[in-house]
């Protein structure tokens, strides 16, 4: 069962370009009955940039957050951004795995009167917290406005799936797809659900980045998605803000809105779109939201077994 309060590390993006994620997280937490208590004086995780320049300061930058969270008495730290999640989780794990690294990092932390013992703080992603701690059964009872008729592509991106999967699979996770079904929506097949959004590529090598963005949007659109749902501000930014640039490059006209998972969850909990930051996206989400129907879609007829066809492999439960 869920706690009353979680120590929360929002990350820089949620303070500016991904306000929408922050407000939907807060309102969804309130609706579900738990608090996200922002840890004191957290700093940037360094994204992917710092590790490229100087390894040890990069670890020290991240470890400052872990050490301060531990000093606050937190044994868990909840992170909504996949990149922040990865850096915090990876630093904790590698400090435990490589004692020499832990020693050097702690030597650096000592200059700020801090120390971090790896394993003290369990770093968790918000989506995993909501799904594991509250659970599908409980969530189902909280749904007041089911998302009937809405077709969603569950976009996990890289960094919650890899290198350390917090979901069921690093390659083909299905947990968020199950969440959508609980919310009454339909989860469309999505081969590129863990394909990278390009990270900072859109900034430093635009065509490389736009091509990756285009592949993802195309795959979701071709599978009939009304929206792509993400758990990461970087993914949202790339797929949303650069969608038109990618369209121009490939001479296409996809208009697939990119929503955060707490935004669709919030809609199903009966929250107003404006409370969930909907309206801040570049590709307008309202046409998709307006598709939500009052009644569940008719159950697809069970197809008769094709006498000629060979059976598909039987999947284990």
């Amino acid at each position: 069962m869920t706690r009353q309060a979680y120590t929360y590390y929002p990350g820089c993006s949620l303070q500016h370009r991904s306000h929408a994620y922050e407000s939907s997280n807060r309102n969804v937490a309130q609706a579900l009955g738990f608090d996200l208590v922002e840890m004191d004086d957290w700093n940037c995780c360094g994204a992917t940039e710092y590790f490229s320049l100087n390894r040890l300061p990069a670890y020290a930058l991240v470890a400052r957050n872990l050490a301060r969270a531990a000093n606050e008495g937190a044994d868990e730290l909840v992170v909504p951004c996949s990149a922040c999640f990865l850096n915090l989780h990876k630093t904790d794990k590698q400090m435990a795995q490589y004692p020499d690294l832990a020693r050097s990092v702690n030597q650096a932390l000592a200059a700020g009167d801090l120390h971090y013992t790896p394993g003290t703080v369990r770093v968790r992603h918000l989506v995993e917290v909501i799904i594991s701690d509250i659970g599908f059964t409980e969530l189902a009872t909280r749904i007041t406005r089911p998302l009937y008729g809405l077709k969603l592509a569950a976009y996990y991106g890289c960094l919650i799936a890899r290198p350390d999967s917090i979901f069921d699979s690093t390659e083909h996770p299905t947990t968020m797809d199950r969440l959508f079904e609980v919310l009454g929506a339909e989860s469309v097949p999505f081969a590129l659900k863990t394909f990278c959004c390009g990270g900072h590529m859109a900034q430093i090598s635009a065509e490389t980045g736009f091509e990756m963005i285009h592949k993802i949007v195309k795959n979701a659109a071709e599978n009939g998605a009304d929206a792509i749902v993400t758990v990461c501000p970087m993914c949202q930014l790339n797929l949303d803000v650069y969608q038109n640039s990618a369209n121009k490059l490939f001479d296409t006209d996809y208009q697939v809105p990119i929503l955060f998972f707490t935004q669709v969850l919030g809609l199903a909990l009966g929250l107003k779109p404006s409370d969930l930051g909907i309206g801040q996206e570049f590709v307008d989400a309202m046409p998709a939201i307006n598709k939500i129907s009052e009644v569940p879609p008719p159950k697809p007829k069970r197809e008769r077994r094709d006498k000629q066809a060979l059976p598909m492999p039987v999947m284990p439960e």
């Binding site: 100087n54 300061p57 930058l61 700020g112 801090l114």
Partner: peptide, 14 residues
């Protein structure tokens, strides 16, 4: 200040 002290030390170790 605390962050900068930590980063300076980390750079020195590195």
């Amino acid at each position: 200040d605390q962050l900068q002290a930590i980063l300076a030390e980390a750079k020195a170790i590195a």
